[in-house]
Design a protein around this nucleic acid. Structure first.
Lengths: 107, 107
DNA sequence: GCACATTACCTCGTCATACAAGGCATTGCA
DNA sequence: TGCAATGCCTTGTATGACGAGGTAATGTGC
């Protein structure tokens, strides 16, 4: 079952940061990587991912560079130092969040 | 760390259904029960919970009754049969969601 | 008896955000 | 030559949690 838009809210940024720990990727490749890493569950649209990447760059968690390799115009994103730290916080927050929700749901 | 508004989106309904498996509760008590069961992490406001309870009742997952016991006017909510089924689905969805997000974040 | 916190309900407006829809340009393939 | 895929973008919409504000009764301390 594909993931619902509403349940994803607030959790997207961490996913984007996480997928970039494997090395820089351009936007389109980020979408594919998320799909691959989630077994197809995370089939995010461009209208979701591109604005989020812009936001993360604006916040200084990502840096981007235009690349004309292979003739095609691509914007390649990479994690900044601050982005790495933020990812650490995101992971901790997720553990806490998932623990809380899981506990209440199971009760 | 208290739970953020955005990350909770889409997950609240399941929590409300779950907290009512212990028996009927009125709205204010639902808020307290969630706080207690989450170790204080889920400190939800009335502006969050009351509309959600109304929505769930409108969807037929909860039923409510006015109670004047103790002189105080209270609306007591209980799970319907459909609500119980919906809770089962919510729990399954949560497992799937948490598994997917957790896997991508950890990768 | 009086002030004030607590219990208990409600609604309205605001904000953040995921997404659909639409547009543009290039490459590659049938 | 047409059409899919790659690759980028923006705008508008819907959703949903929350803050702020309102009402009223009960309980408590002085």
């Amino acid at each position: 079952m594909a993931i619902d838009a509403e349940e994803l809210k607030g959790h997207l940024d961490g996913l984007l940061l996480a997928v970039l720990t494997g090395g820089p990727l351009h936007g389109y490749a980020v979408i594919e990587a998320l799909k691959a890493r989630s077994g197809g569950e995370l089939a995010l649209s461009e209208g979701t991912v591109y604005p989020a990447l812009h936001r993360l760059e604006r916040e200084g968690l990502l840096a981007s560079e235009w690349s004309s390799e292979s003739g095609r115009r691509r914007r390649v994103y990479s994690l900044t130092r601050r982005g790495e730290r933020a990812l650490g916080e995101r992971r901790a927050r997720w553990e806490s969040f998932a623990g809380t929700i899981g506990a209440v749901l199971a009760a």
